[in-house]
Design a binder for these strands. Structure first.
Lengths: 162, 162
DNA sequence: TTAGATGCAAATGGTTTGCATGCGT
DNA sequence: ACGCATGCAAACCATTTGCATCTAA
């Protein structure tokens, strides 16, 4: 659950945002700022910081509390309320996806492409299922008047005893 | 497993006085009592009542609050704490299954056979996906040291706009 | 009789909200 | 300067817990 510093930028990060200025190519700060601008959110200090933490390291699954602690550790002054606000705003504009696995707390996923999850209840650990391992065979027929908004698959795991 | 109740049972649930004897074979009161005995739970007044409400009408998806209100309406004196206790105990022994769809409240499903769900977010409506409409094609390979405990599929629906 | 069950109320924990102050444009 | 953004603390809500009182066996 602990996160290493966002100091080292993750590998794959630039899926969009053509590099504008040579020396800053691929710089998360830039990417985050563009990301925010693109979706119409003012790039404030805390949104930038949270966005940096969230998107600079590839796919992540965080809870509000986790993100708050990370930000605090990273010496970024943010209130928990703002973390919640930001997570929701990011979700609204499609930057994040909310995953319901544990009735008690909400997880947010930085990977908003179609994919599913593994969840280890005893460890409260949530992670992506490799895209190869397709799980959904065919979508069920929705009842009259409804259409499918999304299909969530959570494969719950337990430690193999032995 | 044994889910299909004899069905025909009036909605009216008069009082806490369980019909004591006579021709009660197949009567939910009986079934519930056996059910409880089988799993080693003492058939107390409130457990009987809650079990009756839950299992006498086929597949159901309830929240603690819903069950509490139903019981109250049915003139069954139960405290909310007991409803929670009972739901959890029933779940532990396999009489119920907990479904995580909405991060905020917990739903309990009386159908504990393998199946999945449709969930209409705007209506907070949860219901089973017909068994025919198999959704899971193949199970993903769990990571080393883990095994699959269960696979939950939630197909989120939205009203078809038209 | 006695372990287990229940009820109430207070405690918890995650999340939200109201409102005064701060900051990006 | 304007208006959204932020922080804090109080409010909220679903759920849990402590403890004294019942009750099924």
């Amino acid at each position: 659950m602990t996160q290493s510093r966002p100091a080292a930028y993750g590998p794959a990060f630039s899926s969009r945002t053509p590099p504008a200025h040579s020396d800053l190519t691929g710089c998360p700060w830039h990417d985050v700022k563009s990301k925010l601008r693109e979706v119409g959110l003012r790039p404030t200090r805390q949104r930038m910081a949270l966005g940096w933490i969230l998107f600079a390291k590839g796919d992540r699954h965080v809870t509000a509390e986790m993100l708050y602690e990370e930000a605090t550790h990273a010496k970024v002054p943010v209130s928990l309320a703002t973390v919640y606000n930001t997570l929701h705003q990011f979700t609204e504009v499609g930057l994040l996806r909310q995953v319901a696995v544990d009735g008690s707390k909400a997880y947010f996923d930085t990977n908003n492409t179609a994919h599913h999850h593994f969840f280890v209840e005893d460890e409260n650990n949530l992670f992506d299922i490799p895209a190869r391992d397709v799980v959904v065979g065919r979508a069920p027929t929705p009842p009259e008047g409804y259409e499918i908004a999304r299909i969530d698959v959570v494969v719950r795991l337990r430690r193999k005893r032995g």
